[in-house]
């Protein structure tokens, strides 16, 4: 973002505040990275393990900035311990209760993720 300022000599300067803004939001950027990563997983089958030890497998339909997850066509590991989930076919999981998300190794491009992380770290340092 460019802003126009006038100094005491009445000459017009443009300064670039883009970098400053990004540095300010550095922690936000890393959250965005994981969020973007989850977005690339949409329509893939993942398993979400919750902090109450319930594991739900289903197709990832959507994810939001809190990493709340929406799963479709779900099945539960160990339905005998969780009989209430038998009639549930799609569900919304609050991001704060997720312990792990398991996904197929082939759906992750680790090199790309590593590069993106390094780039974000570099920009945050500037």
């Amino acid at each position: 973002m460019n802003i126009k300022i006038q100094d005491s000599t009445h000459s017009t300067r443009y300064i670039d505040i883009y970098i400053t803004q990004r540095t300010f939001d550095a922690s936000q950027l890393f959250i965005m990275l994981i969020f973007s990563f989850f977005k690339t997983l949409t329509d893939q089958v993942i398993t979400v393990e919750l902090k109450n030890d319930l594991s739900i497998t289903g197709t990832l339909k959507s994810v939001d900035q809190f990493l709340n997850i929406r799963l479709d066509g779900i099945s539960v590991e160990d339905p005998e311990r969780h009989p209430h989930m038998l009639a549930v076919k799609n569900c919304f999981i609050r991001g704060s209760v997720v312990r792990y998300v398991r996904m197929a190794a082939r759906s992750v491009d680790t090199t790309l993720l590593e590069d993106a992380t390094r780039r974000e770290a570099k920009e945050a340092k500037k």
């Binding site: 919750l50 038998l86 009639a87 549930v88 076919k89 569900c91 919304f92 609050r94 209760v97």
Partner: peptide
């Protein structure tokens, strides 16, 4: 809140509970 699930009304009738 932990999770919110939509109850499938057809599946609900078939559940062995």
């Amino acid at each position: 809140v932990v999770a919110l699930g939509e109850i499938d009304l057809i599946a609900e009738d078939m559940v062995p509970l």
